[in-house]
Simulated assay, not measured.
Amino acid sequence: MPIRVLIVVAIAQIVGWGSVSLTSIVGTRIAADLGVDIAAVFAGNSVHYGVMGLCAPFLARAFERYGARRVMIAGSLVACPGFALLAVAQGYGAYLVGWVILGAAGSATLTTAPYILLTEIVGRSAGRAIGAMMLMTGLSSSVFWPTTAFLSDFFGWRGTCGVYAVAMWLVCVPLYLYGVPRRATAPPARPSQDAIPAEPPPRTGPLALIAAGTALIAFVGFGLSAVLVELLIVEGLSRSEAIGYGSALGVIQIGARAMDFLGGGRWDGLTTGLFAALAVLAALLLLAVGDGGPVAAGAFILLYGLGSGAMAVARATIPLVFFDRATYARAASRIALPLNLASALSPPALAAVLTRFGGDAVLVLAAGFMVAATVALLVLARRRPRAQLTVRA
C-alpha cells in the first residue's frame, strides 16, 4: 500500500467526516436561527445517514464500472452545493434538503467508498490499510470540532458551511484527483491472499449475515455514542464525571484501532469482530449490574472503548474474509444500506428508551442486540471459506 495514497485518503476522510459533524458544535445556533428545537437540528444528521444507506446499493455498479476514485471525485463535487444550501437555508425544509444532498454525496465519498478504494489497490490484504486509515480518521472530531468553533466565531454557522462547501472543491477534489492512481490496481495477488479457487464466492447467505451483524453493531455503537453522557448520569454519575468518562472514550477507541493495526494482520475482521462483540457485551452487563460508582463506570468505559474501537475496524474488514476485490464493491454497497439506516435510527430510538424506561432498559436492549450480532458472527465463522481456513492454519 503506497503511504502517499493512504495519507491522501485519510486527509479527505477527516475533512469529509469533520465537516458534517458541525451540528455538534453549532447546533444551538442553527436551532435559534431556523426557529426549531435542537432535536430537529440533529435530525439532519439522521437524514444524512439514511440517505447514505439508501443511495449505497445504486452506487454499486458505478464503483464497479468507474472505480472508487471517480465516484469519490463526483461525490465531493456534489457535497459542495449541499453545504451551500445549508448556508443559505431560511427554513427547515431547505435545511433538510441540504442534508439529503450531503447524504447522497457521503454515500459516494465516506466510509464504504474508501474501503472499496483501498480494496481495489490491495485486495484481500486491505484490512491493515483500512485499519491504518481508521486510526487516522479517528482524529476527525479532535481536528474539526475546534475548527468549527473557531470558524463559527468569526463567520457564524452559515459562513462555516460556506467554508466547508469551498473545501469540498478545493481540498477533497484535488486530493482524489491528483493523489490517487487513475484506476486503483495492484500487482496480481498471491492465490493464498486474493483468490479462493477451491470454492465459488459466497453470495446471499454470508452477505445477509454480514449485513445483519454489522447493522446490529452499528445500532448499538451509534446509539450509545449519542446518549452516553446522559446514560452515565442516569446510572449514578454526576454530570462532570459523566463528561470526563465520556471524553476518555475516544482515546480508548483510537487505542483499540492502533492495537488492531499493530497486530499486523494476525487476525482477520471476523476474529476481531467476535472478540470486540464479547468485550462490548461484557461492558454493558458490567454497567447494568454495577453500583453506578466510578469504578464500574471506568471499567465500562475501558471495555466498551476497546470493543467499540475494534468493532469499527471489524465492520469494514469482515467482508474481506468472504469477498475478493472483484466482488467487494457490490457487497460493501449492499451492506451499507442496513448499516447506515441503523446508524440513523439508533440515536433517537435509544434516547426515547432512556427517557421513558431508564438506563437499565437501554443497557438490556443494547446487550440483546449485541447477543444477536455475536450469533450472526459465530454463524459466519462456521461458513468461513475453506481456503481462508487453510491459509490461517
Rank of each mutant, 00 (worst) to 15 (best):
residue 6 L to C: 10
residue 13 Q to G: 08
residue 17 W to A: 11
residue 21 S to R: 05
residue 21 S to V: 05
residue 26 V to Q: 12
residue 28 T to K: 11
residue 32 A to V: 00
residue 36 V to Y: 02
residue 42 F to Y: 11
residue 43 A to G: 15
residue 47 V to I: 15
residue 51 V to Q: 05
residue 52 M to P: 00
residue 58 F to L: 15
residue 60 A to C: 01
residue 61 R to K: 13
residue 69 R to H: 14
residue 74 A to S: 08
residue 81 P to K: 13
residue 85 L to C: 07
residue 89 A to G: 07
residue 105 A to L: 04
residue 106 G to D: 11
residue 107 S to C: 13
residue 126 A to M: 04
residue 127 G to T: 15
residue 128 R to I: 12
residue 134 M to E: 15
residue 136 M to S: 07
residue 138 G to Y: 09
residue 139 L to S: 12
residue 141 S to N: 02
residue 143 V to H: 02
residue 146 P to W: 08
residue 149 A to I: 00
residue 155 F to M: 12
residue 163 V to E: 04
residue 171 V to P: 01
residue 180 V to C: 12
residue 191 P to D: 08
residue 194 D to I: 02
residue 198 A to V: 04
residue 200 P to Y: 09
residue 210 I to P: 06
residue 214 T to K: 06
residue 217 I to L: 11
residue 229 V to A: 09
residue 233 I to M: 14
residue 240 S to H: 10
residue 241 E to Q: 15
residue 245 Y to I: 12
residue 246 G to K: 02
residue 248 A to I: 11
residue 252 I to E: 15
residue 255 G to A: 12
residue 259 M to A: 15
residue 270 L to H: 04
residue 272 T to E: 08
residue 274 L to Q: 10
residue 278 L to W: 09
residue 294 P to S: 15
residue 300 F to A: 04
residue 302 L to D: 13
residue 313 V to N: 14
residue 315 R to S: 04
residue 317 T to N: 13
residue 319 P to R: 01
residue 321 V to L: 03
residue 329 A to F: 11
residue 331 A to K: 10
residue 332 A to P: 09
residue 336 A to T: 09
residue 341 L to A: 04
residue 343 S to R: 01
residue 344 A to C: 06
residue 347 P to W: 00
residue 350 L to R: 04
residue 352 A to I: 01
residue 352 A to P: 02
residue 360 D to I: 08
residue 362 V to E: 00
residue 364 V to A: 13
residue 366 A to I: 03
residue 367 A to I: 00
residue 370 M to R: 00
residue 376 A to L: 00
residue 383 R to F: 02
residue 385 P to E: 07
residue 387 A to E: 13
residue 389 L to S: 10
residue 390 T to M: 10
residue 393 A to P: 01
